[in-house]
Design a protein around this nucleic acid. Sequence first.
RNA 1: GGAUGGGUUCCCGAGUGGCCAAAGGGGCCGGACUGUAAAUCCGCUGCAUAUUUGCUUCGAAGGUUCGAAUCCUUCCCCAUCCA
Length: 387
Amino acid sequence: MYKLLKQCGRAKRGEFTTPHGTIQTPVFMNVGTLAAIKGAVSTEDLENIKCQVQLSNTYHLHLRPGDKIVHQLGGLHKFMSWNKPILTDSGGFQVFSLASLRKIKEEGVYFASHIDGHKIFMGPEESMQIQSNLASTIAMAFDECPSAVADRTYVQNSVERTTRWLIRSKNEMDRLNTLDETINKKQMLFGINQGAIFPDIRIEHAKIISELDLDGYAVGGLAVGETHEQMYHILEETVPYLPKNKPTYLMGVGTPENILEAVERGVDFFDCVLPARNGRHAHVYTNYGKINLLNAKFELDDEPIEPECQCPACKRYSRAYIRHLFKAKEMLAMRLCVLHNLYYFNTLMEEIRTAMDEDRFVEYKKQKLDGFKRGVEGKPTNKTRKQ
RNA sequence: GGAUGGGUUCCCGAGUGGCCAAAGGGGCCGGACUGUAAAUCCGCUGCAUAUUUGCUUCGAAGGUUCGAAUCCUUCCCCAUCCA
């Protein structure tokens, strides 16, 4: 259940209560596709980096270890030893990312497993059944995420099918939640808005799905190749047509800049692989933009990644040391950077919430974006700070 | 002292007359990554430059040839074996 605590312009500050605890929003959901955040991050670690919600994936867990196995083991929470909320993505994104391995039909999608090539079918009912077996807190409707460059006719047809799939998803979830063997009988369902970069299709779709009284509403199909300006524009056009008294979730986004811009436009849930993936690839976030620790200029840099950061990496280790770990291919390098990046994102959200509570979100956002824009080169030194 | 194998661009290592500034790795340097087929992928790596081209390079010095990292001579090193 979502409680809107405050609005700053269109920006929403809220609280979302679930059977697994209350989520303070705006929130960043930490992505652990295979029931683990890549980079050797444990559940204990997540407690140290302010993680409120984890995200896992229907398609991937269906293939490995198999949702029935997770069900037999008591559901995802017990399986991965995490008692806070978990959102499962429906497999809709894999319809996009595994484009060469699938075929879309009205009944659903035929995939060739990316692991061994065996044929699998997933429609709305199958996706809900898998997610019910996984017993996540929040299930996502099964959708198609069309490419940003798809033409209007394609998108129109795709969105209409996604609507039909949403209704089937909801019916199936309602049914599953009444079954004896269901682990989480209060599993929530979020619908997903699509429409690529066509505002009228987006708005029309938003209006239709808003009538279904779902637990939350996502905007999908963004950050898949369009420009940032197009993404922000779509949010401005679309979000006002989604229910204010429900969470609004921008799927798969994004950079700290993207998040600040989207919060301003009314989004309160986010998820993104970037902090984890970039961390594994030595790119780390600072208040003065993203830096690549592999760069030679950090060879003798004795500073932490972000001097103002209180994460497990920044409290103890220098950029030079972590750079060395990357060069030496020590997995601690990735682990530290993933922890830092996730801490950075979760802290960013915390700061956003505090700023909204204190009615200074606009100033906060501006100050943050200014810092990112200046970059590490433009960072004020002790000397310039005194002046 | 004798026998054999070998010395290639930062490193390892292919190449044995032209298509060779020289395969392939590694390293170095740089880039990408947005509901994770990603601990991945891409580019660059002799010098100088207008993406054309010029110059220098394959242990050293000579030589053969229109043309040599590749063939010949001598020398210098290295490895293994025999004395």
